[in-house]
Design a protein around this nucleic acid. Structure first.
Lengths: 317, 317
DNA sequence: CCGATTTACGTTAGCGCTTACATATTTCGA
DNA sequence: TCGAAATATGTAAGCGCTAACGTAAATCGG
């Protein structure tokens, strides 16, 4: 499912899809059992059933809908003979919704059906059902306390206010080199032995053979890294590029890449290549835009199992 | 929130509300940041951005929508200058959707915004965000394997096929007496000392003083219980009624109640009373329908802290 | 090779909901 | 006490989506 890969960006879409699924399933059940109600009626009918005759606004507040939605749904329920509208004698503005006898009977007869719904959902989803319900409830509470739009705008302002800097290696940054690379390695592949060695001791495996490491810093935060490894005199490998998942989209990767390429030129390098994997499509596209050219076959004698992409830098491409 | 009390019955409604909330928040963000897109466009635009030009059906499948929805959304995107329709030369039926340069630029500029969205959602919802996403993903998978409508209908058939029986106490049922009562006690109140004593040793505290305990059995499952306690000769208390939450709605409570009242009559009892709590509204309604009459004040010298309802049975009411 | 079926897509009608507006009634405050 | 503000509800227009239908193109099967 593509939407899953968008993560938090497509929360609305995925929740909607799930919602429609449950509505549809409930309607299918009601239909095949011959119950005279629809899934969308349930909140209103159950509320009137539990709380007795209530005004439109009371119902709307209880079930989290607008009064218009309740009013229009009431039209339908009245047409279906499930609800009666009654003027409130004490307050002429109000309309009191009352279940008809037909509705009372229908709801009373639905007991076993609702029991089956609860047990059927539990049978289908298992423990995931309660996890989903718990997560929904927690999010509902959290959204009341901290509206998400405000948080996003605050984050945006904070990101925009902080400068994105590219800085060279310093011993204090060693752990970040591991952290930032472990993130994508563990997510998409696994950490090979050669990775662990290089990531744990970059000074020995990258700096000492004449390489360079850059970091991207956003304010205080270290959000990305990239290394230029000297394989032999004049031949460099671009490797170990990683940008923190939550900070992608800021252009840190491109900035790191440019820094490495500039360093490669400063050293008067002859060849700059990289190995990657076709699964990392956005990264590969970025390499192409920066001047790397896809090679027809993998690099002979590659260090990595996961390498199925081999690219070489062509200046001015 | 009333919907929360409906639990699995109102899953669709709550998911819809959450979905609308996220859509709305995203649109608010895009609007205030001046981004030229809307929240509902994102899946289509991102898919074209990630996968390149694609046919309508490809997009629809990827984002889990009907081809009609994609087609209509495309109309809007074309009007907005974000997408071009192109005939597929190889297959004349297909329409290929292509991002315009304007869209490419707009999406490229949205990187920091999406970064802010991810971080803002995390800031608002904290760990609940990942829990929600995990739960959604798990439910999506589970629903593919076991469609929920089928499970519900199967449960319904199973429930309907099994007889609901009321049976008297037997030593083998002792633990059920504790379990069924602990369920509602822990949910709504807490288990008081007197509860623990009575529930752990019903033979001594209920049967020995001349009381009776009934159980409701659905097939093999013990789903409810109710006790008739003899307080003094001719004076009985209805107490410790509990029906398993997942089996409510089958009428087990009413059947148990009727059994206790019949037993009270068989013993030529003079007075039958009960104590309850107003929070258990459905139970109180059931007592009323069975002939219990609400008393104006709590019972003097009640054993229970939670008792704020005192009812006495009036024959033929 | 040609009719039947399948596939791809657009169009239309309709549903459920929202926003915006209109109207009637009540409440508030000087 | 009376006008302004607030409240309660209904109505209309519009949005996003679906289901159903129509049409054109490709594919299948004898």
């Amino acid at each position: 499912m593509y939407l899953a890969s968008l993560g938090k960006l497509a929360l609305g879409s995925r929740l909607k899809a799930l919602s429609d699924h449950f509505y549809g399933a409930a309607d299918e059940v009601y239909r095949t059992l011959g119950a005279p109600i629809e899934s969308r009626w349930l909140p209103v009918l159950r509320y009137l059933w539990d709380s007795g005759p209530s005004t439109v606004t009371d119902v709307a507040k209880a079930i989290g809908q607008t009064h218009s939605a309740v009013s229009q749904l009431t039209d339908k329920l009245v047409r279906g003979g499930m609800v009666r509208r009654r003027r409130d004698l004490a307050d002429g503005r109000r309309t009191v919704l009352v279940l008809t006898d037909k509705a009372q009977d229908a709801l009373a007869a639905l007991g076993p059906t609702w029991c089956a719904v609860r047990r059927g959902v539990a049978a289908s989803l298992g423990e995931h059902a309660v996890r989903l319900l718990d997560a929904i409830a927690a999010c509902e509470r959290a959204l009341q306390d901290r509206p998400v739009a405000g948080s996003i705008l605050a984050e945006h302002a904070a990101i925009k206010a902080m400068p994105l800097e590219i800085v060279p290696y310093a011993p204090a940054l060693r752990e970040h080199f591991y952290r930032l690379n472990a993130q994508w390695l563990e997510r998409h592949f696994r950490i090979e032995d050669i990775d662990r060695a290089v990531l744990s001791d970059p000074e020995r495996h990258i700096l000492q053979p004449g390489g360079t490491i850059f970091f991207a810093r956003l304010g205080e935060e270290v959000i990305g890294t990239c290394a230029l490894l000297q394989e032999s005199p004049g031949v460099f490998e671009l490797t170990k590029m990683g940008v923190d998942e939550t900070f992608r989209g800021l252009g840190a990767g491109r900035r790191l890449l440019d820094a490495c390429i500039a360093e490669f030129h400063r050293r008067n390098g002859r060849t700059l290549f990289l190995e990657s994997n076709s699964r990392l499509a956005t990264a590969v596209r970025m390499y192409e835009r920066a001047g790397f050219v896809m090679q027809p076959s993998v690099r002979p004698g590659s260090h990595y199992e996961r390498a199925d992409v081999y690219m070489i830098y062509r200046q001015g491409a």
